[in-house]
C-alpha cells in the first residue's frame, strides 16, 4: 500500500488517456433493448384512445328533464331580511369578508363555491356554528364564522333562505349524466345506495332542517364535499350516514352524480311562496 502511495505521489506527469478496449457486449444488449422500448413508446402512444376527461363541458344540462331556467336578471335579495345581515353579505364585518365576495351578490355561488340562496335557514346557521366550533373544517369559513355572533349567524341563515338567484352551476366534471340521474333518483341497489332524493327531497330541493337542497350546487363543490365525506374530513351530519354513502361511490359515480345535480334547477323560495 505504501509503495503504491509513493508511486502515486511521484507520478505528477502522468497524462490521462484511454485504453483501447472495445465496448462490453452487455452494453450492446442494453442499447438494443432500450431502442426497442423507445420505438414501442412512440408507436403505441400515437393518439389518445379516449378524449379528455373533463371537457365534456357546459352543455351537460341539456339532457335533463328541466324546468325553464330562471331568466338571468337582477339578483333578488331577500325581501324582508334583517338589514344587518344584508350589510354583512354585501360588505363583511370585522375579520369576516363580505359573503358576497365569494358566494355572489345573490348567494348564487361560483365554480367551487357553494350556492347559499334558497338553502334552509337552519342548515346555513348550523354550518356557520360548526365552522366556528371546528366541527366542520374550512380555514376561511372558520375565520368568517368566528367573526360573527350567534345571532348574526342566525339572521344570515334567514336572509339566504329567503333569497332566490339564477343558477350558475353546470356539469363540468365529465361525469356520465345518465348514471348521475340514476344515482340521484333511484340509487344503486347493488351498492346499497338509496337515491339522493330519498332524503334530499324531490329534485334535490331539500327537506328542512337536516337535508340541504342540492339542486343547482356547483358540480365541483358537490364533488369536493363528497370527497370530504369519504375521507371523514367532513363529519358534521347527525350520524355517519353521508360518510357511508360517499364511501360507496366510485370516482366515476361521484363525478356523475355531482354533474347531474349541478344541472338541476335550484330551489326558489319565491316560487314556493306563490
Amino acid at each position: 500500500m505504501n509503495g503504491q502511495n509513493g508511486q502515486h505521489r511521484s507520478d505528477e506527469h502522468f497524462e490521462p488517456y484511454e485504453e483501447e478496449r472495445g465496448i462490453p457486449a452487455p452494453f450492446y444488449l442494453g442499447a438494443f433493448g432500450l431502442l426497442l422500448w423507445g420505438v414501442s413508446v412512440f408507436i403505441m402512444d400515437r393518439e389518445p384512445v379516449m378524449p379528455l376527461a373533463s371537457p365534456n363541458p357546459t352543455t351537460g344540462g341539456q339532457h335533463l328533464p328541466s324546468q325553464p331556467p330562471r331568466a338571468l336578471g337582477q339578483p333578488m335579495p331577500a325581501l324582508a331580511a334583517d338589514p344587518a345581515a344584508l350589510a354583512i353579505i354585501a360588505g363583511g364585518k370585522g375579520a369576516a369578508w363580505a359573503c358576497s365576495s365569494c358566494h355572489g351578490l345573490a348567494g348564487e355561488g361560483a365554480d367551487a363555491v357553494p350556492r347559499l340562496a334558497g338553502l334552509s335557514a337552519a342548515y346555513i346557521t348550523k354550518q356557520l356554528n360548526d365552522f366556528a366550533a371546528g366541527t366542520r373544517v374550512n380555514d376561511s369559513m372558520r375565520v368568517v364564522a368566528l367573526a360573527l355572533s350567534p345571532e348574526e349567524r342566525t339572521s344570515l341563515g334567514a336572509a339566504y333562505a329567503a333569497m332566490a338567484a339564477p343558477t350558475v352551476a353546470h356539469a363540468m366534471l365529465g361525469g356520465d349524466l345518465k348514471r348521475g340521474a340514476q344515482l340521484a333518483t333511484a340509487g344503486d341497489d347493488a351498492k346499497g345506495l338509496a337515491g339522493c332524493f330519498t332524503c334530499h327531497g324531490d329534485q334535490g330541493l331539500g327537506v328542512d332542517p337536516d337535508f340541504p337542497a342540492l339542486a343547482g350546487q356547483p358540480a365541483a363543490y358537490l364533488d369536493q364535499q363528497l370527497l370530504f365525506w369519504t375521507s371523514g374530513l367532513r363529519h358534521n351530519s347527525p350520524d355517519t350516514m353521508m360518510n357511508d354513502i360517499a364511501k360507496a361511490l366510485s370516482d366515476a359515480d361521484r363525478r356523475a352524480v355531482s354533474d347531474y345535480i349541478a344541472g338541476l334547477p335550484p330551489p326558489d323560495p319565491h316560487a314556493i311562496a306563490e
Partner: peptide, 20 residues
Amino acid sequence: YYFIPKIIGKPIYSYSLSLV
C-alpha cells in the same frame, strides 16, 4: 475525466466507451 485518471495515474477504461 481528466482528474480521476490523472490523480490515480492509471488510464481510462475504454476509448470506444468515451465516444459512446
